[in-house]
Amino acid sequence: MEILLALVVAAMLVSGGIFTFLAAVGVVRLPDVYTRMHAASKAGTVGSGLMLIAAGLYAGEFATLARAFAGFVFFILTAPVAAHLVAKAAHQAGYRLSRRTVCDEMRLPPKK
């Protein structure tokens, strides 16, 4: 039973690390703010959330697991809100999408 729990925790640690690393690669490689935010908010949150859950599981007591789960739920709730705020603010401030963008549905009408 202990071995099984350790295997689950190890798998969550490794997959969380891989998620975080891929999010960082996306932040570096993607062309503009909006796509970078897309990589950072989703993959980064999943990576750190998996590690928090792993820490809660490995502690072996219910209080720590409950706190880790509460922190995970908090990140899942706040990361999309923060990413949406940054993207909306950047779009309203006039930061442009990359040239390869196909469609921008929030663009202003061309002439009034």
Partner: peptide, 8 residues
């Protein structure tokens, strides 16, 4: 987010 992962 990475710092949170480090802490965990």
């Amino acid at each position: 987010a990475i710092a949170i992962g480090f802490l965990a």
